[in-house]
Simulated scan of single mutants.
Amino acid sequence: MPPTLQRLAPRRAKSQLRVAELLRAARGVFSEQGFQRATTAQIAERAGVSEATVFTYFAGKRELCMAVIKDWYDEISSQLEAEVPRLQGIHAQLSYVIRQHLVTLLADGSGMCALVLGEGRATAPDLADLAAVSTECKRRYTQPLMDCLARAQAAGEIRQDMPLRLLRDLIYGSMEHVLWDSLNTQRRPAIDTTAEQLTTLIWSALLPRDASLESLARFRADVSQALRQLEIESHSNNNTPPRRATAKTGAARRSTR
C-alpha cells in the first residue's frame, strides 16, 4: 500500500470518530435546550473540544442540527425497515409500529422528538432547510408502515374509502398528542398499556365499514356448517341416515306447535 494511503486511513478514522463524538454531544444539547437555546459552545464543552473544532467539521449550528436529525432518524428508521416487513399481517405490523414509536417518543428520545416536531414546523426563511430535512427524514421513517397500509388497503383488509395520507395522520397524530401531553404534564404514561389502547382504537377505525356485518355472516355460516357436520356424524354413529327437512315435515312440525 502506498505510504500516502497509510497516512490517510488513520486521519479519516480519527475524523469519523470526532464527528460521531460531536453528533452525540450535539444530540444531547439539542434535546435538552432545543435549537434556539442551544449553542455551539455548549456542544463543544460537552464533547470536550474547543468551539473551533466544531466549526472544523460543521459550517454552523444549523448544519450541525441537520446532521443530528439525520443521524437520529437513520437509527430509528433502520430498525423499522428491518423489523416491520418480517411481521405477518397488518394488525401485527400496526401494533409493532405503535409500540416502537411510543418507546421512541416517551422513553428513548422525547427531547429529540420535541426538537423535530418543533423545527419541522419552522416558518422562518433561515430555518427552511432545517424543516425540509425533518420532513424528508419523517417520510422515510413512516414509509415502512405506509407500505404495509397500502398492501392491506389493496387487499381489502382495511378501509379503502380514505387516502393513505389521512390514515398516516390518524396513526402518528394520535401518538404525537400523547407526547405533548406527557411533556406538558411531566408524566409519562405506561407505554405497553397506551400502545394496546391506541392499537385497539386505531384498528377499529381502519377496519372496512362493513367488516362487522361480514364477520357476522361468516360466523353464522361457520356455525351452520358445524351444526350440519355434527348432525351427519351423530347419525353416522347411530347407523341411521340424517333426516332431510321437507315441506311436509316442516308443515307437520308447525301444526303440532
Rank of each mutant, 00 (worst) to 15 (best):
M1L: 11
L5I: 12
L8Y: 03
L8T: 01
R11G: 03
L17S: 05
V19G: 08
A20N: 13
R24M: 09
R24I: 05
A25F: 03
R27H: 11
V29P: 08
S31F: 09
Q36I: 09
Q36D: 13
A38F: 02
R46A: 08
A47D: 03
T53P: 05
V54C: 06
V54R: 00
T56G: 05
T56V: 09
G60T: 14
K61N: 08
R62S: 05
L64D: 04
C65K: 04
V68N: 08
V68K: 01
I69G: 02
K70P: 05
E75W: 01
I76A: 07
S78V: 08
A82K: 09
E83T: 14
P85S: 15
R86T: 15
L87V: 11
Q88C: 07
G89L: 10
Y96V: 03
H101F: 14
L102M: 07
L102F: 10
G109Y: 04
C113N: 10
L117S: 06
L117G: 01
G118L: 02
E119P: 01
G120F: 04
R121G: 02
A124H: 03
L127D: 04
A128E: 14
A132K: 15
V133N: 06
T135Q: 11
C137P: 05
C137W: 01
Y141E: 11
P144H: 10
R151N: 13
D161Y: 10
D161V: 09
D161C: 13
P163N: 11
L164V: 10
R165D: 13
R165V: 15
L166M: 14
L166V: 12
L167V: 15
G173S: 14
V178Y: 00
V178S: 06
L183V: 15
N184V: 05
T185L: 11
R188Q: 10
R188T: 08
T193H: 06
E196V: 05
E196N: 06
E196A: 12
Q197D: 12
L198H: 06
L201N: 04
A205R: 06
L206I: 06
L207R: 13
S212C: 01
L213I: 02
R220D: 12
D222K: 04
Q229K: 04
E231M: 06
E233D: 15
S234V: 11
H235P: 07
N237F: 08
N238F: 05
P241T: 12
P241K: 10
P242R: 04
R243I: 15
R243A: 15
A245K: 09
T249R: 10
G250M: 12
A252H: 14
R253W: 15
R254P: 00
S255H: 14
T256P: 00
